[in-house]
Nucleic acid binder design. Structure first.
Lengths: 217, 217, 217, 217
DNA sequence: GATGAATGAGTTTTCATTCAT
DNA sequence: AATGAATGAAAACTCATTCAT
C-alpha cells in the first residue's frame, strides 16, 4: 500500500517536472519574442498546450517564470564557463578559452542572450538585487573569484600584463563579454547592416581586443 | 490681424512643444522605473499632470513615445561623440577622448542607459530594423564611418596597430562601449557588491583594455 | 468662457449624480434579491443599463455600494424617526408614534429591511465598527439620545413607568423594533404560514407588548 | 467474515460521521467569519484539513452545508426550548423561563446567532420557504403550538393578560426574541459603544418589557 | 486643446467541478 | 475514500480608445 502510494507520488512528481519544463520552454520562447511584460500567462498556456489556469498551478506570475528561466540559463552557462576555466595552459590561454566558449554560446544559443536582455529590462527598476545576488552565489558560487584567480595566475606565469588589477580585470572581462553578447544578439540585423560585419565577427574582434589588452606585450 | 494670428500661433506652438517635452520627460522617467511595456498612457498622463486623453493629442502609443525619447537621446549623444571625434591629435588620442566622453555620459546621465535597456527589450522581438537604421542614418549620418575613418588615420599616423580592420574595429568599439555602459548601469548595485568595484571603475578598465588592444604595441 | 465651463461642469455633475442614484437603485434591488455577496458588479451594470466598467467609475466594489445604500436608508429613516419623535404629547404617545412610523416603513418599504439583513450579514465578520458608528453619528447625531430623552420626559410626565432606565429602555426599543422588522420582512412567507398571522400583525403586537411594558400600569 | 464486514462498516461509518462533523464545524466557523456566500469550498476544506475534492464526498455545495448547520442548530435549540417550556409553574413563569433560556444561549453560543444572520441573508431572496417549513415541522413539530398553548394556559391560570391572542402573542414573542438575539449579537460592539449597555443587558431588558407586556397588570 | 464619460477588448484571478489514480 | 491534475466558467480589474462637450 505504502509502496504503491510512493510509486504513484513519484509518477506524479515526474509529470509535474515535465510540465514545469514544458511551461518554462514555452515561456522562454514567448519572452524572447514578445518581451516578458508583453507575454501573458494565457499566451504561455496556449504555447504549452494547456489551459490558462493550469499555469497557475506551477507559477504565480511572469516574473516568477522569468526568474526560473534565468536560473536554468545560469545553470547551463555554469558548465560551459567551468569547463573553459579548468583547462590546462597559461592564464592567457584559459581566458581566451573562456571567451571562445562565450562566442560558442552566442552562436548556438542566441535565445539565452535575448532572454537576458528581456530579464534585464524587467529587473532594471526593481529592487531585486538581493535575489539576483543570492542566485548568482548559489549557482556560481566562487565563479567570479575563479576568473580573478586565473588572471592572478596569468600574471604569475607571465602570460598577462603584470600591472593588471586581477579583480577589476575579471569584472571587466565578464561584464564586457556578457554585455556585448546581449547587445549584438538583439541588434544583430541593424548592426550587420550598419557595420557590414556579422555579429560573430564583431564579438570575436571584441574578444581579440580584450585579450590584446591584457596579455603581456 | 495677420500679425496677431501669427503671434497666437507662435505662442500655441511653444505651448505644444513644452507639453510634448513634459510628456516625454514624464514618460522617460516611468519607462526607466517600470519598463516601457509596464507603463500605461495613464501613468504618463498622471506623471505629467494631464489627463489620459490629452496624451493622445501628442502621441499615438507607448512605442511612439519610446522612439521619440530614443531620438532625443541620439541627438544629445551626437554632440558628445562629435566633439570628441573632431579633436586634434593622433587617432589613438581621439578614440580615447571618445571613450572618455562615453564614461562622462555614463556618470552624468545614467538614465539614458537605463532607457536604452528598456528600449532594446521592447525593440528586440519587433522587426523595426528599418526604423532604427533610418533614425541612426538621419541623426548620426556618417558617424560610424567617422569612427572608421579615425581608426584608419590612427593606423596611418602610427598610433594604432597596423593590422586592424578599421570598419570591424570601429563596430567593435562602439558596440562594446554602448553594451557595457547599458549593462553596468542596470546592474550597478549587484555588480558593485559582487565585484567590489564601482561600475565607473569597471567601465574605465574596459576602455583601457580596448585602447591597449588597438594601440601600437 | 469661465461661465460656460462652470455651466458645463454643473451639467456633468448633475449627470454624475443621476447615474450614481441609478446605480445605487439597481444595486439595492439586486442586493435584496441575491444578497450583497451574491451580486456582481456586472449584474449591477446590466440592471442599470451601463457597462461593467462604467460602474468602476462610481464605486470600487460591492461593499462600497452597500455602505452608500445604507447611508441613504439612514438618511431617509432619519426624517421619519425625527418627525415621530418631535410630535407633541406625552412620552408614551411619542414612543408609540415612533413605533407606528416604524410599522409604516415596514409596510411601505420592506426593501429597506431586506437590505439591512443583507448588510448585517456582510458587516458581521468585519471590523468596520468604527465606520458604522461614524456614519450613525454623522447622520443621526444625537438621535439615540433623543429617544432616551423622550423616555425620561415620559417618566416625568407620568406616562411611563418610573422604574425604567431611560438609556437602557431606549436601546432596547430601538433594537427590538429594528431587529423584529428585519426578521419578519425576511421570513414573511414562512412566518405567515407557520403562525397564521401577517407580519404586520405580529410587528404591531410586538409594538403593543413593548408599549405595555413601558407604560405606567 | 460477515461479522468482520459489519465491524468494518461500522468503523467506516464512524469515520464518515466524524469527517462530516469536522466539515460542518469548519464551515460554520467560516460562514460566521466571512459569510456563507463569501466562503468557498476550498476555504472549508483547508479549515477542516482535507482537500477541496474531499468535501464533495459529503456535500454538494455551500447551501447544502448551510442547511445542515441550520438543522443542527435547530436540534440543539429544541432541547433548550423544550426543557424551559415543560417546567411546572404558571404560564408567565414558563414563558419567562423560556426567554431566560434564550438569553443563556445568547451568552454561551453567540455563534449560532451569527450563523442565523448569515443564513437569513442567504435564504432571503430564495424561494425555499417550503424547505424551511418542512425542517421546522420535522424538528420542532408542534413547538410554536406549544408556546401558544402555554400562553393559553397562562391566561387561564390568571398569570397572563386575558385579552391576549394566544397564537399572535406566541408568534410575537418567538420572533422578537430570535430577531433581537441575532441583531444584538451581530452588532454587539457598535451597540455597546453607542448605547453604553452590554447586549446581554439590552436583551434582558427586552425580555422584561415583553413579560411586562403580557402579564396580568 | 483639453476633458469627463463611456466603453470594448483583453488579462488576471478565483472557484466549483470532473477525471484519473 | 481521498487526492492531485486539469479545466470551464465567471468575476474582477485594467487599459487604450472614442465621443461629446
Amino acid at each position: 500500500m505504502t509502496e504503491k502510494q510512493t510509486e504513484a507520488k513519484k509518477i506524479y512528481q515526474q509529470h509535474r517536472d515535465r510540465q514545469r519544463m514544458a511551461l518554462l520552454a514555452a515561456a522562454k520562447k514567448l519572452f524572447i519574442e514578445k518581451g516578458i511584460q508583453g507575454t501573458t500567462l494565457g499566451d504561455i498556456a496556449v504555447e504549452a498546450g494547456v489551459t490558462r489556469v493550469t499555469v497557475y498551478q506551477y507559477f504565480t506570475n511572469q516574473s516568477d517564470i522569468a526568474w526560473a528561466i534565468l536560473e536554468r540559463i545560469f545553470e547551463s552557462s555554469k558548465e560551459v564557463r567551468h569547463n573553459a576555466l579548468q583547462l590546462d595552459g597559461t592564464g592567457y590561454e584559459r581566458i581566451a578559452a573562456c571567451l571562445a566558449g562565450f562566442l560558442q554560446s552566442l552562436i548556438h544559443d542566441p535565445g539565452n542572450f535575448c532572454f537576458l536582455a528581456q530579464f534585464d529590462s524587467m529587473y532594471a527598476g526593481k529592487q531585486d538585487v538581493a535575489r539576483l545576488l543570492e542566485m548568482t552565489q548559489r549557482i556560481f558560487g566562487g565563479a567570479p573569484a575563479l576568473v580573478t584567480e586565473i588572471i592572478r595566475k596569468g600574471i604569475e606565469d607571465g602570460s598577462l600584463r603584470s600591472n593588471l588589477n586581477p579583480a577589476l580585470t575579471a569584472a571587466t572581462i565578464v561584464n564586457v563579454a556578457l554585455a556585448t553578447g546581449v547587445r549584438l544578439t538583439i541588434h544583430r540585423k541593424s548592426v550587420e547592416i550598419e557595420y557590414g560585419h556579422t555579429i560573430e565577427q564583431i564579438f570575436g574582434e571584441a574578444c581579440q581586443l580584450l585579450l590584446q589588452g591584457i596579455r603581456t606585450p
